[in-house]
Design a protein around this nucleic acid. Structure first.
Length: 116
DNA sequence: CTTCTAACA
DNA sequence: TGTTAGGA
């Protein structure tokens, strides 16, 4: 029974990583990207930052990590459509990985912790 | 001063 | 992608 801190509430909504904190200006400086680019990434469906008061974008650490991914892929010459595709696959893999882990845990044998 | 959308080059 | 107009 090790490795099971979260039962109350929801599934492991890990850390406060999804907490909206940074305004577009901050993120812009943080990643050295003009605000327009950040808005366009959202427009292209690459991420969905939260909004404050319905208007202003608020990015979370999670959003930042996605943006870092986007920057890399973009630098490799992949366009928005390609990046969206890759990002979606990433998500799929993440979900499937979780399901695999759950499936293992539901097996009575309780296998050796061979994560990843 | 910061951010927002829309639009044009 | 850069920039600008026009409003909040």
């Amino acid at each position: 029974m090790r490795r099971r801190p979260g039962q109350p509430g929801r599934r492991n909504d890990d850390e406060m990583t999804r907490m909206p904190k940074y305004t577009i200006g901050i993120v812009s400086q943080l990643l050295n990207l003009p605000p327009q680019v950040l808005r366009r990434y959202e427009e292209a469906g690459l991420l969905e930052p939260a909004r404050q008061s319905g208007k202003n974008r608020l990015y979370s650490d999670y959003d930042i990590s996605i943006l870092e991914e986007i920057v890399e892929l973009s630098n490799e010459g992949i366009n928005a459509n390609g990046i969206r595709y890759i990002l979606q696959m990433r998500q799929e893999i993440y979900i499937l990985r979780r399901q695999v882990t759950e499936a293992r845990e539901n097996q009575d044998g309780t296998p050796p912790s061979t994560d990843r």
